[in-house]
């Protein structure tokens, strides 16, 4: 945005202005996370001490809560389940959404518009009670109480969102590129896979990131379709095992929250640039 030549002083002033503004946002965004980390490293006596300074650790950092989480619960299994479920569900949804998104964005056939709207409408269906009838479907499919119950049901909320996002992205790709490929004798499927997809990578990464986050954080389906501890996801496992009636294992709960966020944070930081550019096209032309 800095256009033209500016004096050094002006540049420093502008930078200072930027930092001064971004810091409150950072505090707002990070403080709860900081507080989670602090809580997970504090001993219980200090946690429940009314006179203690709440956002410092004064009586020494302890790792007991993490040790409890890793040794006394099946946290690692839950993380593994979460990872498997998120990866498979996201991939499957991506394939479905890419096909549907391309079709809706690029091809002309009867009903294309109404179908596009239908995809969007499914996003509006209030999810509160949807899990009840869906639990029947899961039983009919014979997959209740397995991780497949989630792999199959998660696409229901991923596909509408990703399709919609990818539709916007595909529209930004110049039509001429495809036409050239078609003229050269490639089939439509080949054109989609070899020509269009490589150009849509940022959009796909973006949809994948969203999908991954949504599945990783999903709660209701994971709670109701899975009973065995060995098949639970991280979010459900942590809240199911560390809340005992009116007693909350605050330290371990927060430790679980911190550890469960780590994989996604890593993924995000890594793919952030794709993410931003992916959204650019998708959102703008949507």
């Amino acid at each position: 945005m800095d256009v033209g030549v500016r004096s050094k002083g002006a540049r420093i002033r502008s930078a200072a202005f930027g930092y001064a503004n971004v810091i409150p946002f950072l505090c707002f965004a990070l403080f709860p996370f900081y507080y989670m980390v602090i809580t997970s490293l504090k001993n219980d006596a200090e946690l429940y001490d009314l006179k203690a300074v709440p956002f410092l650790i004064q009586t020494g950092v302890i790792t007991d809560h993490y040790r409890y989480l890793l040794a006394k619960t099946e946290f690692l299994t839950w993380m593994k389940n979460s990872l498997i479920i998120s990866v498979i569900a996201t991939s499957v949804s991506l394939v479905i959404s890419i096909l549907a998104g391309y079709s809706l964005a690029r091809l002309r056939f009867r009903g294309v518009n109404s179908f596009g709207t239908a995809v969007f409408i499914t996003y509006l269906v209030p999810p509160t009670l949807l899990f009840l009838p869906l639990s029947q479907v899961v039983v009919w499919l014979g997959i209740s109480d397995t991780i497949w119950a989630l792999v199959v049901t998660y696409p229901t909320f991923l596909v509408p969102f990703s399709t919609w996002l990818l539709m916007g992205y595909f529209r930004t790709i110049p039509k001429e590129v495809e036409e050239c490929a078609l003229v050269d004798g490639a089939s439509r499927m080949q054109t989609l896979i070899r020509v269009v997809l490589p150009m849509a990578v940022p959009g796909i990464v973006c949809a994948a990131l969203f999908g991954f986050t949504l599945t990783w954080n999903e709660f209701t389906y994971a709670l109701t379709f899975i009973s065995q501890s060995a098949n639970k996801t991280a979010v459900v496992g942590v809240t199911a095992d560390l809340i005992r009636g009116d007693i909350y294992y605050w330290g371990s709960l927060m430790a679980g929250a911190v550890l469960a966020s780590v994989p996604i944070v890593a993924v995000y930081v890594f793919f952030l640039d794709y993410y931003v550019s992916g959204l650019t096209a998708g959102a703008v032309k949507g």
Binding site: F131, L132, P133, S135, Q136, V138, V139, S144, D145, T220, L223, T224, F225, S227, Q228, S229, T239, A240, D241, I243, R244, G245
Partner: peptide, 25 residues
């Protein structure tokens, strides 16, 4: 014999789902 335990606030949803799908524990 398998004993599954969950937080007590989560039980109603679970019961409803099992009654609805006629399957579960």
């Amino acid at each position: 014999v398998r004993v599954d335990t969950i937080a007590h606030l989560q039980l109603p949803a679970k019961r409803a789902a099992e009654a609805q799908s006629q399957s579960g524990h």
